[in-house]
């Protein structure tokens, strides 16, 4: 039942993602899609084929690993979020959308992750301080007790869209993720398909969308598990254009 991954290889053996130095961990899986540029110099799959929109409504799988995300931990983080005009969710495991379509995920009392806007392709987040967590100078760019995290590199970002999102998740995850038990803005830090992941219930242009953040090195694995799981619902890979038009 697994959709042949070979069928997703480009004809010419070239991968558009390799035009940028910064690449998604599963970029080979989206090679047949048309690419588009995101803030930070990475590329994203824009469109696979004319059926993208239909698939996205049923059960779409979208690789957003190229889209900017950031994270901060520590008591000083609310100050940073406030300065940036971003919302602060009321308690851990809640997410809230910002004005530009960025999402703030509160993972613990002091840990917040930010997911770049699909509509402006991460432009708002690109202005945040301390984005280069690899550089220890980042500590000088943020408020006291606000440690930039490595979300852009430690985690891959896949998104599951459409009416069958919770049916698909029910094949992968032992937590009740049906809409009534897991309403918009809920976060589950849990195990799915036997790896750890962070699942966020979002809505993009009226479309139900669950973002899944997983160990970056397991992104390719999770992609194959999701593609296998959506077959039953006539789903499949989709590009960003199918979600944001």
């Amino acid at each position: 039942m697994t959709q042949s991954t070979e069928s997703l290889q480009p004809d010419n053996g070239q991968f558009w993602a390799e035009a940028a130095l910064s690449r998604s961990a599963c970029y080979r899986r989206t090679a047949v899609a048309q690419p588009m540029l995101a803030a930070g110099g990475q590329q994203l799959p824009e469109r696979f084929d004319p059926q993208d929109v239909e698939r996205a409504k049923k059960a779409g799988v979208l690789d957003l690993s190229g889209l900017l995300r950031a994270g901060y931990r520590g008591a000083g983080t609310p100050e940073l979020l406030g300065n940036a005009g971003l919302p602060i969710p009321a308690r851990p495991n809640l997410a809230a959308a910002g004005a530009d379509g960025d999402w703030v995920l509160r993972l613990s009392n002091t840990e917040y992750w930010l997911l770049g806007s699909l509509t402006n392709r991460g432009e708002t987040l690109a202005k945040l301080p301390g984005l280069d967590a690899c550089d220890s100078g980042c500590l000088d760019a943020t408020p006291d007790a606000c440690y930039p995290l490595f979300c852009m590199d430690s985690h891959g970002w896949l998104m599951l869209t459409g009416e069958h999102v919770s049916d698909v998740m029910a094949k992968l995850c032992g937590v009740d993720l049906r809409e009534e038990a897991f309403p918009l803005g809920s976060i589950a830090q849990t195990s799915l398909a036997r790896i750890n992941g962070i699942i966020v219930h979002q809505e993009i242009n009226g479309l139900t969308a669950y973002s899944i953040l997983c160990d970056n090195a397991s992104t390719d694995y999770l992609w194959t598990a999701l593609i296998d799981a959506v077959q039953e619902f006539d789903g499949g890979p989709v590009g960003l254009a199918s979600v944001v038009g």
């Binding site: 940028a20 130095l21 910064s22 930070g40 690899c134 550089d135 220890s136």
Partner: peptide, 20 residues
């Protein structure tokens, strides 16, 4: 040391990779 690895990019402005 912390530093940069210089890599020529095809179209991206980013040619410096942050490195430890």
């Amino acid at each position: 040391r912390e530093g940069k690895i210089k890599v020529p990019g095809s179209f991206s402005d980013t040619t410096d990779i942050p490195a430890r």
